[in-house]
Simulated assay, not measured.
Amino acid sequence: MDRVAVVTGGSRGIGRAVALRLAQDGQAVVVAYGHAPAAADSVVTEITDKGGRALAVQADVADESAVAALFDTAERQLGGVDVVVNAAGIMVLAPLAELDLDDLDRVHRTNIRGTFVVGREAARRVRRGGAIINFSTSITRLSLPTYAAYAASKAAVEAISPILAKELRGRDVTVNAVAPGPTATDLFLDGKDDATVERMAKMNPMERLGTPEDIAEVVSSLAGPARWVNGQTIYVNGGAA
């Protein structure tokens, strides 16, 4: 029986790389997306053209009815859920003194409420031997100016994950968070000039940005063979923090 993975934010960036990597690993993949149906469909096509199984489902991760329907679809069409990767997230950058509180609410709705909503459904449905993988950020350690709203939301993810791991005692389901450093995605690159990108690339001793595939490699391990890693935040940043 194939393992089945639900990947939120699976249409673009790190989520897309994770969906493709888990499919390469032999998992059937539900590509959950918010606002990019064409991008999600392209991920599904890339997986199915290589002989894998995948489908795209629209869902607002902060909407409990939409997330329940997402899991219903995974169970109905693919037979169940073994892995949940909660890669959906948004980022708004501004100095705290200038932060628009509506933006703060929007970030927290997706990044915190979304983690609770997806995690709650995952805790109810993931089969034995499964894995739940949330996304934090290395900014929680780097403490870069303008990142307060985003870092605060991701610090909450780091608090949630080990607690859920303990709440699932006896279920043989692991819960971990992955905390990427600066990674070459549209989300990261948007609004940054070349000098800023270059400076951030050199923050780690590898002197480069991470790639989505670098992050997906770690998720692949947590989603399959790494059964003795549980309740942890794994920093994937080339040694930046």
Rank of each mutant, 00 (worst) to 15 (best):
N176P: 15
G15N: 10
R141I: 11
S11F: 12
K202T: 05
E46H: 08
D25P: 13
A152V: 10
A68L: 05
A131V: 04
D25T: 04
V219I: 14
R76L: 06
K166I: 00
Y235I: 03
V126N: 01
P180R: 02
A201M: 05
G89F: 09
V218P: 14
D105F: 11
A19E: 04
T45P: 07
R12Q: 09
D82L: 08
G34E: 04
N237F: 13
Y150H: 06
A151C: 01
V178K: 01
D82M: 05
V4T: 13
N111S: 00
A226K: 07
A88R: 02
L101R: 10
A69L: 08
A148G: 10
T73E: 10
V92A: 04
E64M: 01
A216Q: 02
L101M: 12
T45C: 08
L93W: 15
V175P: 09
R141W: 15
D193W: 15
A69Q: 11
G119S: 00
G13S: 11
Y150F: 08
D49Q: 12
M203C: 01
N204G: 09
Q24E: 11
V18R: 02
V57N: 00
E167I: 07
T233R: 02
V219E: 02
N86M: 04
T48L: 04
G224D: 09
D105L: 12
E64P: 13
T146D: 09
T73G: 03
T110N: 02
P225G: 08
I163G: 00
Q232G: 06
Q24N: 00
D102E: 14
T174V: 03
R76Q: 07
F135R: 02
T137F: 07
G238E: 06
D186G: 07
G114F: 03
A159Y: 02
D105G: 13
N237G: 09
G224N: 11
M91G: 08
E167V: 02
F116Q: 00
N204C: 04
I234W: 07
A241V: 14
L142R: 13
R128V: 14
G238F: 14
V44A: 05
V83G: 07
D25H: 08
A131P: 08
A97F: 10
N86V: 04
P162N: 01
E167K: 03
R109W: 13
D2K: 08
V83P: 11
D105W: 06
G13Q: 05
R106N: 11
E213V: 04
D25R: 12
L22P: 08
A68K: 06
N176S: 08
A56S: 11
T45F: 11
G26C: 08
P212N: 03
A23N: 03
V157F: 06
L142C: 13
D186L: 10
D102P: 12
A88I: 10
V43Q: 04
T115S: 07
